[in-house]
Amino acid sequence: MRIRPIARHDIEGLKVLARETGVGFTSLPDNHEFLIAKIERTLAAFESREQSEDRLYFFVLEDDSDGSIAGCCAVEACVGTDAPFYHYRLGSLAHSSVQLNLHRTLDTLTLCSDHTGDAEVCSLFLREDWRRDRNGALLSKVRWLFMAQFREAFPDKVLAEMRGVFTPEGRSPFWECLGSHFFPMDFDEADRLTGMGQKSFIGELMPKFPIYTPFLSESARAAIGQVHEHTRPAVAMLKKEGLRWEGYVDIFDGGPTVEAYIDDVRAVRDSQLARVELIEGNAPVTDRPSIMASTLSMADFRASWISHAVTQVSEGPDEGESVVCLYRDEAERLGVSAGDSLRVLAG
């Protein structure tokens, strides 16, 4: 399995992913023109290296045994520059009077665009048949290696929006209590329009004044900042990297947005460069790989699990140099040969 930038010929594979994602996955609607445009945006970002703000880096997970597309993930370099990017910020308002012997603090939800200009890791999806061998972790973490390698292409902060709470019937209590009063459409339609990038309607229809959360139903309040049960592993992985919930939630389903300074993300901090040395034979099969490597060129970016961690040369002219040993099949998968360098992350 390996990660690479999406290419034009991946359109059919991408459509399969789009059909399998379903509701609540706003960034991958099953729409031909939209997906084509997504690929083109990615190609522009990878090839031209131009520093326009509106850059999308979209990756696919390719099964190198037969070339099929098993999953995807992406990084938006800078959100909110072409279309507004909204959140609710959960805050509190003290409410007190000495004479009335009153001191209460009420939670409020305030519409904001505080994350304008931040990077976003998004669009992570792994098809059912490939949910094994830590493929999900590969898709999640590759983005940190990429950002570490091309650090200057990204801003200070990064965020990830997590899917909120839904009932087993697929209804969002947060939406039903709040959004539905302001959007004369159902959740799926609102969600679809957002996914298609038609976000300005949100600002036009959303309540501009803070919402006092005690006015919401109990189930809606309980959904604020909570994730869908299927999303818990994804949140756990991001939290291990150091991302935190700072009180921002999705305006539709109330799901949390986790965030961090990119330089503080564990994988960004801990990844290191190492020179490739080849060893004979193919890698032994494992279902718990833990060392990840990615290439250093943007256009030919590749990443995959490898077998061996980085070591330091202990003697000779190269003493102290970091070296990573690859089996032949690992080197082929990444498209590197002896003497090239890789960015490597352990754990």
């Binding site: 308002l93 409410h95 007190s96 009077s97 004479q99 009335l100 009153l102 009420l106 209590c177 709040l178 009063h181 302001f182 309540p207 004044f209 803070p210 919402i211 006092y212 006015f215 919401l216």
Partner: peptide, 17 residues
């Protein structure tokens, strides 16, 4: 008005009542 001064200053959305 003494009490009103402690009322939250933002408008209330009727659909939430």
């Amino acid at each position: 008005s003494f009490i009103a001064e402690v009322m939250p200053p933002f408008p209330l959305y009727l659909p939430l009542l």
